[in-house]
Amino acid sequence: MPIFDPYFVTIAVIAVLIVGLSKAGLLGSLGMVGVPLLSLIMPARDAAGVMLPVLLAMDAIAVYAYRKEVDWRVLRMMLPGAAVGTIVGWVLWAFVSDAAVLLFVGVITLLFILDALLPIRKKLEGLPPSKPWGIFWGSFAGFTSFISHTGGPPFQIYVLPQRLPPAIYAGTSAVFFAIVNTSKLIPYFFLGQLNVHNLQLSAMFIPVGIVGVFAGIFLVRRISMKLFYRIAYWLVFLLALKLVWDGFRGVFLGL
């Protein structure tokens, strides 16, 4: 599809803006729709390659903006697992389909939302984070992030129940994914995802992503915690339904 095709440009701008708002912590894990949306206008593997430099540019801004608002305890628990998940994703890159990953992430995310609705979840919220679960969900986030930049739901499954203040949540998320995305540069290069054409597209989309990040930073500091988490949970739920449907169609119907 031509780069300046109106449909191409519209889908790309919407996708990158959503990811930018998510990077600032405003839309929860809705930013993971970036690759699925771009997959409407280019192959999914190329979409992942195009998005990586854009994500890194947005990560840099988000990390700087929230550099003093980070829960390092959470990161120490999740990052070792994320490293393992990234390596596994690299090894399995040729064997795991995008549709299978989307289906798996969607099902796990739906279970997370159902769990959040149960009374026991209310008793667990606010408790100190568990290191074993941090490693587990960190590895899951690293793996799905490598395959299709869909590490948001696993990260949220572990972090959202801790009810961090919105700015702290945003800062912790920004640092976590900045480190994870940086670790993907070398594997993506050797897999051919960072070719000249993809990098040209990335350069076009980076300014759009930066606008989205700044807009999200402005809004996230002005939204109430109750409204913030209500939006986050609903968006994750709706996104999970979409992921399950798209994954099911790809795995079982071949669509």
Rank of each mutant, 00 (worst) to 15 (best):
L56R: 07
L55C: 01
L56G: 08
Y64P: 02
L38A: 03
V50T: 04
V35I: 07
M77I: 11
S39W: 01
M32A: 11
D59Y: 13
L55D: 00
D59R: 05
L37I: 13
G28D: 02
W72R: 15
P80I: 05
P80R: 05
A47H: 02
W72K: 14
A62C: 05
L75T: 11
S29E: 08
A44C: 05
A44T: 09
V54M: 07
G28S: 02
L52Q: 04
M58N: 07
L27T: 12
A44L: 07
P53V: 06
L37S: 10
D59W: 08
Y66I: 08
L27C: 09
L55G: 08
A47F: 03
P36V: 06
V33M: 14
S29M: 08
P43K: 11
A65K: 14
S29H: 06
M32C: 07
P53M: 09
V50H: 04
R73E: 14
A48F: 00
E69K: 14
G34M: 02
L27V: 10
V70K: 08
G49E: 01
M32E: 14
G34R: 01
V35Q: 03
E69V: 05
L79G: 05
A62T: 01
R73H: 12
W72F: 15
V63I: 14
K68A: 14
L30V: 10
P80W: 05
R73G: 15
G34Y: 00
S39T: 13
R73Y: 09
V70Q: 14
M42C: 08
D46W: 03
K68M: 09
W72C: 09
V74D: 02
L56E: 06
V54A: 06
M78N: 10
L40M: 10
M42W: 04
R73S: 15
L27N: 08
A48P: 00
D59H: 13
P43C: 11
L30Y: 09
G28I: 01
L56I: 15
